[in-house]
């Protein structure tokens, strides 16, 4: 009898579970987020400039601001985000299985990822590329002079692969010294364990700023890979994809229009141009297709800031930022010779 009842219990459990797992009516991502009351935005483990924790336990950085911008577009409140800090090993799984609504972390937009992982890259908010950091005392002017050098590199990343490719293409015979941890890599480099460090240039900038004498080290001009970074959403919900994409465009466009968090209220009261009026929701109904409030873009600029403001705060050369100059780089606005470009708001 005892065995029988146990068996019955097991069957009961199974049956209950199957009923529970019955598929429910699919809700759009936006509805889910509104119902939940906050956005679930995936970021990575701390990386200076992009996403890092401060001593009060708050997330900050340029990719974090992207999450906050989307939350602001939906709720008008940049604090309605749950940040999910996930290692890169499971980043796309955590997006695909519905744990995260979007991903705003240093994920490079590649053909494979865009077409074969069920993901959509919503845009580019940072143009990165791999480079080399060397001591100034070596007197190098170009990465092509690195012949036979030992290079510190993180293992298991595309960084290592890019470096070997570059070495083979240019017959440089670079010898990689691999590390698991960026702190150990940088310490080894500082103590002369290798001649150069290779990483994305944003990472090199923060490595450089770690050292007691940052000016003793230079980043070589060559960029050996293209690393366009931007927010990502899941396939299958175009409206949600467009919300993320246009939140990014709104930040870039605002900078182009000269709308900042400081002057956005004046702009709202007295729009300098019809495009700004449409942008801020004074005229037209650009919000309709997105399913957002009329003042969604206003909220983003007011509470998070435009692209330039965010860049200066976290990536630029001010205090608390990691010190990557923007002028003349690909991350400058298209009007200033860069690649940051937003389609028109009309």
């Amino acid at each position: 009898m005892k065995k029988l009842s146990l068996l019955g219990l097991g069957i009961g459990f199974l049956a209950g579970f199957t009923v529970m797992a019955e598929p429910v009516m699919a809700q759009s991502t936006l509805e889910q987020i509104k119902q939940r009351g906050h956005l679930r935005c995936q970021i990575g483990t701390p990386a200076p400039g992009f996403y890092s924790l401060d001593a009060n336990g708050q997330w900050q950085g340029s990719d974090v601001s992207m999450c906050r911008a989307v939350a602001t577009a939906i709720f008008g409140d940049p604090s309605k985000v749950e940040f999910q800090s996930v290692t890169s090993a499971v980043r796309f799984t955590a997006l695909a299985n519905g744990e995260s609504d979007m991903l705003s972390r240093t994920a490079t937009w590649t053909a494979f990822r865009d077409t074969q992982l069920g993901l959509k890259f919503a845009g580019i908010n940072f143009y990165d590329g791999q480079g080399f950091l060397v001591p100034k005392s070596l007197g190098l002017k170009s990465a092509l002079e690195l012949k036979g050098a030992t290079v510190c590199v993180l293992t298991g990343t595309t960084t290592e692969l890019n470096m070997t490719d570059y070495s083979r293409t240019n017959n440089l015979d670079l010898k990689p010294v691999v590390f698991e941890d960026s702190n150990v890599r940088d310490e080894t480099y500082r103590n002369g364990g290798c001649d150069a460090v290779t990483n994305d240039k944003s990472g090199l900038a923060s490595t450089r700023s770690k050292f007691a004498n940052a000016n003793d080290h230079v980043i070589l001009p060559e960029t050996i890979s293209k690393e366009p970074l931007g927010p990502v959403t899941r396939n299958g919900d175009d409206q949600w994809f467009q919300i993320v994409r246009w939140s990014l465009f709104a930040m870039i466009a605002a900078e182009e229009y000269g709308v900042t968090s400081a002057n956005v209220d004046q702009m709202l009261a007295k729009p300098p141009s019809p495009e700004v009026a449409r942008f801020l929701g004074v005229e037209g109904e650009l919000n309709k297709g997105l399913g957002l409030e009329k003042n969604w873009a206003y909220n983003i600029i007011k509470k998070v800031g435009n692209y330039g403001e965010v860049y200066e705060k976290y990536m630029g050369e001010g205090p608390g930022a990691i010190g990557i100059p923007r002028a003349g780089s690909q991350n400058a606005l298209w009007t200033k010779g860069g690649l940051m470009y937003a389609p028109p708001f009309r």
């Binding site: 483990t45 701390p46 200076p48 890092s52 924790l53 702190n183 700023s209 770690k210 608390g320 990691i322």
Partner: peptide, 18 residues
């Protein structure tokens, strides 16, 4: 964010970089 990850997070903060 257990103790270990909090310890690691310090080195990635721009103010306390490294």
């Amino acid at each position: 964010y257990d103790l270990l990850l909090m310890l690691k997070a310090v080195s990635q903060n721009p103010q306390w970089n490294g």
